[in-house]
Structures are given as structure tokens and as C-alpha cells.
Design a protein around this nucleic acid. Structure first.
Lengths: 205, 205, 205, 205
DNA sequence: AATGAATGAGAATTCATTCAT
DNA sequence: TATGAATGAATTCTCATTCAT
């Protein structure tokens, strides 16, 4: 087999493991998704799982989490940011987050479980959010006037808060509450909530 | 066979089981809190746990959850409700919820885990919130003019949304985010968020 | 309470225990009929079961077995015995045994289980059958000419064999095979089988 | 963690599990043969048992039962079948069944227990007997004139009955009754019983 | 006589993980 | 790389039995 073929095979197997794990969680619940069952579902051997993920289950989640692009912000959207158009600016991001959370529900459940159980995962999650918000903030401060005026530290902190807010609300809405009749209303509400939040901080600082 | 000492105090034992379970979760994490460990920690036999909670761990959680008064709303606070004083009206409730979530962190972690894992717990949680909000709504509609004007159905639904919102935000803040420097600021933010939310609904309906 | 009332109460409780035990076996299988479940089903306490049956489950079976009149032979039927009317003579007994085995299926299952598991029960069963056949044989030898001619030992042994044969075949037919379309055919077959058996022994001795 | 030695020999291990299970039953009785004890006796880990028999004890029995050749009929014996030689024709089969039941007593006890406890095992037993009798009947109807004349349905049904009869009588005799002084007499009796039975059916149809 | 809380050994089962092939 | 047999600690749960009230 050529190197490239092996490489592709490897990627396929890893994807298979991810998919089987998250499907299993949706089907039987997190606590019943064992490495053995993942292997069975993926039609590979347990050995293979441990080959790619030496620490087992937690490794699967953490590696998926690390490579996941689910949560990345698209900077372009924010370049036109202005105190008057906050809801409109945030809508694309909210909309994408809803879509992602729905599509990857198994993964999200696993992530929440691990955040509750493992300090390291909780820290990793917090760091990733911080990282994303830092990058975005720095980037925006070089490209966009409005952001340049805000001290970097503060910008990052607030971005982080808003980011967490969106994540938490969407998760709770999708998984627990189901209040709004359709996604448009949910998006409308959250985007306005962010508008409110930013202005609330504006005032209080 | 070894001698057995039998002590009898139903209520105490049940409390002991609750406490040991939730302490164990705080100490070692949810997934390491097994029935055997609970028994050991509580210095009782496993049999006793299954005597009171035939379905094991999930039963402990569900029974605690059902009898818990943690989440009840104090109606008196809301009697002076008025569109101009929303933040002030909600502050005592928010404050108490923060306190409760902190005090019973082990239980809250168990609850969140179970909501993620077991459909029935999720449903039970949704129903309890609904129940509380129904009671409060009905009660307020008999005692307070402002609420009488709002159709019952709508009042309940919005109360439920706000209730969920508060719960989810406080949990996420305490457990994951830790953004505000002190509880006062958190209370200030959430109470204003509710003000915003109520007015947002006002407009959109 | 008067002594008689207590006595009656006692009998009622014991009957309740028997019934619950055998019902439980039919409903959930022998291995799932525990003393705790019997108590629950009978709506009495485990303590009460151990009060009347100090050795627990096995005691229940053995005491029921000992007092049971299920298996007794009605001597009157056999007084007209004659080599020419064997099938007719045995039919009432076969018929009654079928009825009994059907009615007390839970008990019969328990009995078979214990015969397979416990040497003592097996011996007790063998002894009971022997006892019954001894009594009947002796009795018949005093009252009926045909039997007087057969040496006592031999009569007992053959009676025992026939008795076992009937028991085993009826049990197997009811519980495992279900070959004949109705009880009449089954009775016809077994009664002729006995006729054959007796004559087979006649020849070979 | 302790060192682990891994030995690989699938078939041997499976045989080891069968043997240990059935030996344990003979030694301590069916109800005391637990999966843990089987593992200990077989000097393997419990995990291995569940690796090969995911449903535990009942799986061991059922899988052994399904692959067992204990009960198969040797067709050759029956080709010379004729109403005048029935006892002689059946003797080899009866003799072999006695031998098998004695040799595999532990397994037979387990089988009887399971027939009493689990509807599925009872059904599986009935089906296996039916299967064997079907095969034999069909086969004999192509090769032997006498059988060709009997309608297939009826032949199968009667074969099944006789098969069950032999099984039940031998089991009861070996395990409960012990009437005949030696196997020859038992074989003599049963073979004549079959002769009687076949002729009984002949008449009644 | 009756209760039922309490026991703890032990049964069934699962799971993460290892390692020879 | 990949397999899957093998492990055994750990977990869940059951059961017969005791005993203070």
C-alpha cells in the first residue's frame, strides 16, 4: 500500500471511531458507550482504538475536541461591527452554532459529561474558548477601528463571556428546554440578548 | 457468620445516603461514585441502599430531586411586580438560586449528569420546572393585577423560560465560566437580563 | 384474640405464603422467587415467613410437599382390580393427577427444581412415593384377593414404578411435549401403557 | 496493576468452560454454579466467559445444547424397521441415550433446570427434538418402504412423541427412580414400551 | 406473633486495558 | 498496522437471613 493510501485509511478509521462513539452515546447514553462497544459498532478491533487513542475513551473525546472546528468564529462577519448593528452581526454565528450543536449532539453530550467529570476537560474547554476569543479579538483589533479603542484585555474577556453565553443557551435550549417554535425566533432572541449584554457592559464600565 | 448490629433510623439513613453520594461526587467525580463506595462512606451496607433505593444510584438522585425544595419560587416577592421594577423583584430569587447551587454542588453535578444521560430525568426536570411555574403563575394571577391581564398559558410559558434561563446561566457561571468578580455583579447582570427578556417578549407578541 | 382466631389467622398466612411462592414461580421463574419477593407479594413481612418457615424457601417447599394430598391414591378404585380391567381402574387416578399437576404447576416446577438440586428433596420425594405405595399395597393386600397373591415386596416395587411412570409422563406431557389434543386421549394412552407395563412384568417374572 | 499472561486457544477455552460448568453442577448443584466459580475452576477470568458467552450461564448451556450431537438419531438403524422387530430396532438408540445421559449428567441437570426455568430453553429443546425427528422422518421416507406409506406429518409427530418418551423415561429412571437392576432390563422395557406405543397408535388411527 | 430495617456475602455483568500474533 | 482473545478489578444488584422493636 502506498503511504497516501495508508494515510487515508488511517483517517477513515479515526473518523469511524468518532462516529461510532458519538452515535453510541445518542443511542444508549454516555455511560453505556464503552470502548468495546465502539469497536463492535465500528467493526474494528479494540486494539485499533487503543492504537489511535492510547488513553481510550477520554482520548477520543479530547482529540476530537482539539481538532474540532465547530466552535471557531468567522472574523469577517465582525468587521462591520458597530453598536447599532450587533444583532445582525451575531446572527450568522448563532445560526451556525445551532446547526453544529444539533448535528453533533452525541459529541456535545460527551463534551458536557466530561466537563462535569474531569477538571482537565473543563480547563481545556475554557482554554479553547479563551484561545478562540483571544485570536478573534487580536485580529479584530488590527483590522477594525471600533475594537481598537477597547483595551485588549477587556475585549477578550467580554468576547469570552458572550461566547460562553451563546454556547450555554443554545445547548440548554436544544437539549433541555425547547421554548421557541423555530430557530429564527431563537436566533432573534439570542442576538438581541447579546446586544443587551454588550450595552449592559458599556454602561457599567 | 459474623455478628450483625442493626441500627434503625430510616430518615437518618436516607439522609446519610444522600450526603455520602453527593460528597463522593465532589471528591472523586460522578463516574467514580459507585453504590459500594456510597455504602462504605455512609458506613452502612449496600443492601440498605437498595432497600431504600431499589433502582440504585439513579433512584437516589430522582428521589432527592423530587423531594427537594431547592428550586421553589417564593411568591411573595412577585406580588409587587411591575414593568418598572423587574430587576429588583427577581434579585432575591436569583440570589437564593446561586446560594443553593453552590451549597448543593454535588447534587447539582449529579443532576446535570443525569439530565445528559437519562431521558426520564430530563423529562422529570422539565416537568418539575413546569409544575413550579404553573403553580406560581396561577397563584399570582389570583393575587396580583398585573398578572391577571396576561393569559394564563402565556404567563406559564414565559415564566418557565425565565426560570430555565436563570438556572442554566447560574450553573454555567458557577461551574464553567466564572466571569463576574462577585455574586452581586452576577445578580445585577441576570436581573437586568430578565428585564430585557420580559420586555423583548412584550414587544414581539 | 381467641385461640381459634389466632389459629385460623396462622393457617391463612401459611396459605398466603404458599400461594405467593408458587405464583411467583409461574410468573418469573423459580430462580427469581426470593423470600423478599414472596413477602412483598403476600403483603406480609419477611420476618413472618421465617417465623413459620425457619429455613426459608426450602422449608416452604418441603412443608407443602409433606402435607400435600396431591399425590395420594384412592384405594377404593383399585378394589375391583383384575387383569382384564387395568385401564379402567387406573383412569380416575390418572385423570386426577393431570388435574392436580395443572392446578399446582408452580408447585410442581418448584418440586422438580428441588429434586434436581437437593439430594434431600430427591430422597424425600422417593420416600413419599414409596410410603404411598406401601400403604396402598398393604391395604389392598388385606382387602383384595388379586393382590394377596402377589408377594408384598414385589407389589410395592411395581406400584412404585407405575406411580413414578404416571407422574413423569404427565409432567413431561403438560410441561414439555403437549402431544395429545385433549386429556381424554392422554388418559387413554397412559392407562393402556400401564396395562402393558403390568403384563410386561407378569411375563418377565 | 498486576502482570497478565495471555494464552490463546479459543476452542480449548470454550471446552474448559463447558467442562467446568457441568462439573461444578455435579459437585455443588446447579444453583451454586456461578460464573465466578466457573472461571475459578477453569482457571480463566470471568471476562473470558463473557467474551464467549455474552449472556452468561444460560448462554453456555444454550450454545452447548445447540452444538451437541448427544441426541441425534442414527438413521441406519431404522432402515430395517418392520412392525415385527420394533424392540430390536430401537434398542441401539435407547442404549446410546442411556450412556449419553449418564456421561453428561451435569449437562443434563443443567438442561432440565433450564427447561423448568426459561421458556426459551424449553422452546429450544422442543424445536431441536422436532428438527431431529423431521430430518429422520424425511430421510427414512425416501429410503425405506414402510415409512413411505405413512403420511409425513403423522410420522414426524409420532417420532417426536417416542423420542420425548425415551428421553423423559431414561432421565427419570437415572435421576429419580432407579427401578431396574441393570441397563439391559431398562432397555428391554423401554423398547417393548415403544412397540406397544406404535401399535397403540396404529389401532387408534 | 409480626414487622421490616439492616446486613454483607456473593452473583451477574461490564469495562478499560494489555499483548501475543 | 491491526487484531481480538484475555484479563481481573470494579460495579450493579440480589438474596437469604437476623434481630430489635
Amino acid at each position: 500500500m502506498s503511504k497516501r493510501k495508508i494515510e487515508r485509511n488511517k483517517e477513515e478509521k479515526i473518523k469511524l471511531i468518532y462516529d461510532s462513539f458519538f452515535k453510541l452515546i445518542l443511542e444508549k447514553g454516555f455511560h453505556r458507550a464503552s470502548t468495546n462497544k465502539i469497536a463492535k459498532k465500528a467493526q474494528i478491533s479494540v486494539g485499533t482504538i487503543y492504537h489511535y487513542f492510547p488513553k481510550g475513551k477520554s482520548d477520543i473525546l479530547i482529540k476530537y475536541f482539539e481538532k474540532s472546528k465547530d466552535m471557531v468564529l468567522d472574523i469577517e462577519n465582525f468587521k462591520a461591527f458597530d453598536l447599532s448593528n450587533i444583532p445582525e452581526i451575531f446572527k450568522p454565528f448563532i445560526s451556525k452554532d445551532i446547526e453544529n450543536q444539533r448535528k453533533n449532539l452525541g459529541y456535545r453530550i460527551a463534551l458536557r459529561h466530561s466537563i462535569l467529570s474531569h477538571k482537565e476537560v473543563r480547563k481545556a474547554f475554557q482554554n479553547k474558548v479563551l484561545e478562540i476569543c483571544k485570536d478573534t479579538s487580536k485580529n479584530l483589533r488590527t483590522s477594525t477601528m471600533v475594537f481598537k479603542k477597547i483595551p485588549e484585555e477587556r475585549l477578550i474577556k467580554r468576547f469570552t463571556f458572550i461566547y460562553n453565553l451563546i454556547e450555554a443557551l443554545i445547548h440548554h435550549h436544544i437539549f433541555v428546554m425547547d421554548f421557541f417554535d423555530n430557530d429564527e425566533e431563537l436566533i432573534e432572541y439570542i442576538s438581541n440578548l447579546i446586544d443587551f449584554t454588550i450595552k449592559f457592559f458599556q454602561k457599567s464600565s
